[in-house]
Design a protein around this nucleic acid. Structure first.
Length: 495
RNA sequence: GGCGCGUUGGUGUAACUGGUUAACACGCCGCCCUCUCAAGGCGGAGAGCACGGGUUCGAGUCCCGUACGCGCUACCA
């Protein structure tokens, strides 16, 4: 185990956001690659917003993605005393000061701008910055409320090497004397992250680019605390198609990873997709990577600087999420090893009540045959229920698509006679195999002077209720003799 | 407003330290295969690299400016 220690530090919002998921993934990949430690820390200092339920959504998302953490979950709220202690140290060494200025009211945007402007110069203008110790003591004595602010140096600059964005520097004059501790003693974000990251020995801070400018403030806090500054790597953001920030409120369920779980995504596929959003491996066109390959190839240098768009389409149900994610999921379902796929299919069938234990015992071979037929056309795991129902039920409780019935059954009245005859012919087959079934059907068609296609399409609809699906003879073999016969006779009534 | 970051086809990305008609994947269109739908194979449309200047024999690659987007500018995180 190397000394690399990284963390994913989401706030408990009740769900894991795709952007957060990618941040978690990159931290995880980096940790695994360097045999380091991946830590989960819940940033729950905004106490009103956090509850166990809110945390659960995050944990569920990480679990589904398979991003296991080595330490945690830690809760930032458990470290409040450490945050305060850090502030006391900064107060003692003069890197922070108590500010008695009244709290600004900033309701509308206009006021906010003015205040922002003022804030930047506040350390120069702030009357509290250089208050005499006796006065501070006296006002405190009187019970005047105060916040603790960082005493940002008047000159100089902060700088760091970002693994993604390169050399970053900022003039200290551009940095306001930020508040560390609220007047109620509540620690604020920039303080908390730094103290926690120090406490947890974080070596690499890998997080969203929205923290790029905060980093300068945080560096100042590290310095005020006399602690070494970790490495930083800022990730480009994942944006909505209109380039706006992704938000659950505005964009709905597409932003939550549990949506993908529930929609039948293969975790590896979603991880693969996420990995390629803002990152590309060096020197290859390859797009499909196992986790092991991702870990091996991952490097901070391959991270893109510009934001990526998550290309979902709210008005197109077929492309409800990024088409490439959908494609990748289908690709995984189609090509992944059967032994990896079957547990996922099992879970799906259990969910929909179609599962039978014999599928992993005496009917295992048959089951895998059916799965391999269905997987060819599946986009999501839920398709094993929708497309798969005809394979897994004995009765006629699969849905008959009206258009299919019309096109493949009702269009040719002769089928009313032909289907039962075909059924009887199938019934007489002693060896009910793919090839025998095909020979029989084609011979039957010739004998009756009809095109094989007519019977093939009719049979497909009889067996599955659909107009589309696998090659008919594979299907017939998978459905088996008895159900084929019964379904053909049943379908004759629909003609 | 200030400061910072970014900008290659619809989307995700590639293009060694500047050097042939800007590559790959998804999506889209067409053809082939075929009992349907997929998958697969083949082919096509789609960017001249945000825009404008400059440096250079030569720039997506370097420099400057502009525009646009995003972030920070809270006693939010």
């Amino acid at each position: 185990m190397s000394n690399v220690r990284v963390r994913f530090a989401p706030s408990p919002t009740g769900y894991l956001h795709v952007g957060g998921a990618r941040t978690a993934l990159f931290n995880w990949l980096f940790a695994r690659k360097h045999k380091g430690t991946f830590i989960l820390r819940i940033e729950d200092t905004d106490l009103e917003r956090s509850s166990e339920e809110m945390v659960r959504g995050i944990l569920e998302g990480l679990e589904w993605l398979g991003l296991d953490y080595d330490e945690g979950p830690f809760f930032q709220s458990d470290y409040v005393e450490k945050h305060r202690a850090a502030v006391r140290r900064m107060l003692e060494n003069g890197h922070a000061y108590k500010c008695f200025c009244p709290k600004e009211e900033r309701s509308d945007e206009e006021v906010k701008k003015i205040v922002a402007e003022a804030a930047r110069w506040s350390k120069r203008l702030n009357p509290c910055r250089d208050l005499a110790p006796e006065e501070v003591a006296a006002r405190e004595e009187r019970g005047e409320p105060y916040v603790v602010r960082l005493r940002v140096p008047e000159r100089g600059k902060t700088e760091f090497e970002d693994a993604v964005y390169g050399h970053m520097e900022r003039d200290c004059r551009e940095i306001e004397d930020l508040v560390l501790l609220r007047s109620d003693g509540h620690p604020l974000y920039n303080l908390s992250v730094v103290v926690d990251d120090i406490e947890m020995g974080i070596t690499h801070v890998i997080r969203g680019q929205d923290h790029l400018s905060n980093t300068h403030k945080q560096i100042l806090i590290y310095q005020a605390l006399g602690q070494p500054v970790p490495q930083f790597a800022h990730l480009p953001l994942i944006l909505a198609p209109n380039k706006a920030k992704l938000s659950k409120r505005k964009h709905g369920e597409v932003v939550s990873v549990t949506t993908y779980r529930d929609a039948g995504f293969v975790p590896d596929a979603f991880v693969n997709f996420l990995a390629l959003l803002g990152w590309a491996p060096e020197g290859t066109d390859q797009e499909i990577f196992t986790r092991e390959e991702l870990i091996e190839r991952f490097s901070l240098e391959g991270i893109h600087k510009s934001n990526a768009i998550f290309n979902f389409n709210e008005s197109d149900p077929r492309n409800w999420t990024d088409p490439k994610a959908l494609w990748m999921n289908a690709e995984y379902i189609r090509t992944m090893p059967m032994e990896r796929l079957t547990p996922l299919v099992k879970a799906e069938l259990q969910r929909s009540g179609l599962w039978r234990d014999e599928y992993e015992t005496e009917r295992k071979a048959w089951f895998e045959q059916a799965v391999s037929l269905i997987r060819e056309r599946a986009r999501t795991l839920t398709n094993f229920t929708t497309h798969g129902r005809p394979y897994f039920v004995d009765d006629f409780s699969y849905e008959f698509d009206e258009a299919a019935v019309k096109k493949n059954l009702r269009k040719e009245p002769a089928l009313k006679e032909l289907l039962p005859q075909l059924a009887d012919a199938f019934a007489s087959l002693t060896e009910f195999t793919r090839d025998r079934a095909e020979a029989l059907l084609r011979g039957f068609a010739e004998e009756k002077g009809v095109k094989a296609g007519l019977l093939i399409n009719a049979t497909r609809t009889a067996l599955t209720g659909q107009a589309v699906g696998p090659g008919l003879f594979d299907l017939v073999a998978a459905i088996g003799k008895d159900r084929t016969v019964a379904r053909l006779k049943h379908a004759a009534q629909l003609v």
